[in-house]
Amino acid sequence: MNPRGRRQYLALLRKDLRLEFRTRETVVAMGLFSLVIIILFEFTIGERVGNTAPIAGGIIWSTLALGAVLGVGRTWVPEREQRVLDAILIAPVSRLVMMSARTTALVIYLLGVQVVVVPLAVVFFVNGTSAVNLLLIAGVCVLADLCIGIMGALLASMSVFSRTRELVLPVLLLPSLIPVVITAGGATDAVLSPSRQMAEYRGYCLFLAVYAVIFALVAYATFDYILDD
């Protein structure tokens, strides 16, 4: 990215974070929603299974993916509600810069939610774990969030400009995120299993990285056609 693009990227990112910091709509809603789902899972599944440790990863990532839909759905919403969209689209900003800023903001929101939700979920489902394990899970979070951020920015930019946006997004986003949920859950379970499975963990992380790269390329090739009317 050239200096001009970097300045635009930082400006757009700062704008998103400022709006979020002022209203705190997205992160709070995502966090509460995720907690509610975690508790739902605990009472509907956890109580009956007894030992939830082997399925903790799957529950955590299903929850986070569902919560992510809320955050992804906010993409372009301030622009639409406050009627700034034309001014942003008309500025000489490459669509690559716009989408990168969007993706980064999404990753930051997701991480903000996960800082609270993941440790809580680990306490609920496996009665706590070591600091090293939490760090390893944080690595999974970063990679998976990148996947969700890229796919989210890509699909949200289409659903938001459609007629029934809130309804379309989950149907559009969740099937595409199933591979991410499967592998991020697998990686988390690999860390949390009694004997830490590092080889498995690395394999899952590699998959997430490949997913992110592939869809970053797809996004790069297509988003000009999404944003320009």
Binding site: L19, R22, Q82, R83
Partner: peptide
């Protein structure tokens, strides 16, 4: 430079 019906500025900034 484009000016429409709306001011096109962020209300929360």
């Amino acid at each position: 430079g484009y000016l429409g019906h709306d001011p096109m500025v962020y209300l929360d900034l």
